[in-house]
Design a binder for these strands. Structure first.
Length: 242
DNA sequence: GACCCGTTGGTTCGCCTCAC
DNA sequence: GTGAGGCGAACCAACGGGTC
């Protein structure tokens, strides 16, 4: 797709085929029916009609759908967002559809279906972008991103939101689509993959850099997710770089 | 043989989820 | 929002392969 000069707003359907890519424009996905499985550096979510997903520009993501589906999709040129806004939503945003978003979805849908074309979509998106940025990173999630390389307990995170740890787990899952520990694990794994591909640090040191006291833990987690050991992953990345 | 690095098996403890 | 039980993640220790 060439560079966008205006917001594109339309209904789209997705197939079972798994795609991985990033684009120069941002993308807002509002489910109408069905489920879209989305994976980014920090999210692994099944997007249903009670949530939305927002991809900032250049955000790597993988997606596919397993059922009959339809989504309202907005392709937003990069210049519609300030660098500060993009930085704030770096990694994507998975957000529940409160009544304000449900109303906004209806209005956007009318624009998409309008015979005159989506003329009012720019004003609607200006309002939507303000909603997106509202408390987009709760304090505990911000804490995870700043301290993933240290030991983080559920109690610490729950304290930041003033919740009981058990209640916090449910709240976190509703917010991100993952449990707190799974979220931290994904973040650490992605950082480890970066370091394996881009540095020559030993696995022991990489494990410590991303927050594991013991490299054995990284080896095991890595093999579970990637089906290969960290050393084999590094070898594969170095071979493909040649 | 000593040392380093990476992997694997067994154990412990904290997290997650269900029921209330 | 809380308590309790089951389960999985993290840790420790041991082992294997490679290099000097």
């Amino acid at each position: 797709m060439g560079s966008l000069t205006r917001i594109l707003c339309e209904r789209r359907r997705y197939t079972e085929q798994c795609y991985t890519h990033a684009h120069t424009f941002a993308q807002l996905i509002l489910p109408l029916q069905g489920t879209l499985c989305i994976q980014t550096e920090i999210y692994n979510a099944d997007l249903k009609d009670d949530h939305l997903f927002f991809f900032p520009p250049f955000c790597d993501h993988t997606f596919h759908s397993k059922d009959h589906n339809e989504f309202l999709v907005l392709d937003i040129p990069e210049f519609f967002l300030s660098p500060q806004e993009i930085k704030k939503i770096n990694g994507g945003l998975y957000k529940s559809l409160d009544p304000r978003w449900q109303a906004l979805r209806l209005l956007m849908l009318n624009e998409a279906d309008s015979a005159q074309g989506p003329g009012g979509i720019h004003e609607l998106f200006r309002y939507a972008s303000r909603l997106l940025l509202e408390d987009c990173l709760p304090p505990s999630i911000q804490f995870i991103h700043e301290h993933y390389h240290q030991k983080i307990t559920l109690q610490q995170l729950a304290d930041l939101e003033h919740y009981h740890p058990a209640y916090y787990c449910g709240w976190f899952q509703k917010t991100t689509g993952q449990t707190p520990m799974a979220y931290i694990k994904n973040l650490r794994l992605n950082k480890a993959k970066e370091l394996l591909a881009e540095s020559s640090l030993p696995v022991l040191q990489i494990a410590q850099e991303v927050g594991y006291e013991h490299h054995s833990t990284l080896s095991r987690v890595f093999k579970e997710q990637e089906k290969i050991s960290p050393a084999a992953y590094r070898e594969r990345m170095q071979r493909s770089a040649k």
